[in-house]
Amino acid sequence: MNRINQKLQENKKLISIYFTAGYPEIDDTVTIIQNLEKSGADIIEIGLPFSDPLADGPTIQASSTQALKNGMTTELLFRQLESIRKTVNIPLIIMGYFNPIMQYGVEAFCKKCREIGIDGLIIPDLPIDVYEEQYQTLFESNNLSNIFLITPQTSTERIHYIDAMSTSFIYMVSSASTTGAQSGFGNEQKYYFKRISEMKLNSPLIVGFGISNHETFTQATEYANGVIVGSAFINHIKKNGIDNFKKFIVNILNK
């Protein structure tokens, strides 16, 4: 069983943190991962920056632009992560758009992930049917979970298809939006969380997009197994640096 699934079996609400590799500084990747593990994060999503991140709001766009300016590339990221498993045991997911992965070579990319000890991938613009047809075997043979998104607009039938294709958790997008911090969820979102949780899917649900504080954490985890925090974390490191994330994580979990 890979590290994500082990983590999902723990009897607690999980917090997964996203950061953009190469931001704020090109060589921060390893330090951020180590400090996140020490500070109590449960899962880490390493963002592979892309020039045209369609699904992202202004915060992650800006961090991606800066990371690319700093010189981040797929090869460099893999070099930085080469010995990461000597120091951390936390589940690691790479989140990136499909074009840079295609250019690296999907097969080479998956193999490299396995060598390093990456547990899963989130590729928002790789359609699930293309994945099933062309890449599922490759991902599975490299012990990589591919993590799919659902949104408030995703049909019941499609959610069941996504559930059946998922091998770890489903990334539940909180609202019809690009990524970005929100201060609170409305009734519509709460109803959506409840509706999905009542579907009794096989896959655990982790809510992302709009999680920024204890209130949104509590609202989401009433129905889901955990949250993903991205933009709020990027904003945090922009202001406070990368040395210690304990207070940031505690504030979301416990207030």
Binding site: E75, N99, Y104
Partner: peptide
């Protein structure tokens, strides 16, 4: 060369690393 831009698999100008130029 072949890649993905604006939701379509097609030919596009990009860096070796897959960033659109």
């Amino acid at each position: 060369n072949e890649g993905i831009i604006h939701g379509s698999k097609t030919l596009l100008m990009q860096t070796k690393d897959g960033q659109i130029t």
